[in-house]
Amino acid sequence: MKEHIILYSVVKKYFIELKRYFLNTLMTMIGIFILFMLVFFGLRSFDAGTETLQGTIIGFAMWIFAVMAYSEMSWGLLQEARDGTLEQLYLTPSSFRRISAYRVLGSFIFQFVLFLAFLSIMMVVTGQYLRLNPGVVILVGLTLLSVYGIGYMMGGLSLVFKKVQAGNQILQFMFILFLVLPTITDHPIIYFVPISWGNFLINKMMVGGLTLLDFTLIEYGILLLNSFAYLIVGLIIFRVMEKIAKKRGLLGHY
């Protein structure tokens, strides 16, 4: 099987659709940026320290990244089902989960570029300069695995229960809570909820100036366990829901 051709086709399609909706994406980004400016300058007016301000920049950029990554999975699946193309993705030599993963890869490339662009603009506008270590790609990638896991989970649930949009919106706000959690508590809960620990390490790298070599094996271990646990559980739930949807004839019915 020529899996690389399937991968190329899925990623290429992602970028074509992105290009076609460029203006739409740009307007959303401008809206988000205005929101960021309000949060940032609001905090500054309360005399927040440099670390808090820099943490806000990273947290905000990570939140956008997480929401986009998550939406790609769950909304993307809903969109396919509504358009009637989901069935077609099941009629391929590759598996649907793998095709979703390829799309996620395409979106990760785009979103990472966007993440860097966003950070750069934010740094220039706010005058708060962060350390852009190349190792951040690895940390961001690992941190987002948990978000993709949740995306699979919610995507699977939407195959069976359809009306999960309300849950999607709640989750977007939950991500904010998860991201700020390490700044308000050092309770072990930050090891278990998604993206908290990863964001904590990214902060240490970009604000504290640490490199990949400065983190301990335990710190990496927690990040890996947390991210892969969410991803694996997400994939299992997706598989179970997919099976239920096939049993109940719900696949592609919207």
């Binding site: 099987m1 399937i6 074509i16 358009d83 193309t85 391929t92």
Partner: peptide, 27 residues
Amino acid sequence: LEGNRNIYWRLTTRENLEFFAGLQGRS
């Protein structure tokens, strides 16, 4: 299935054909 669904509305005619060929692993 279901008539005119099953295609990507944002893609052009050619892009749709290329994508579906790609899904089958055809370059």
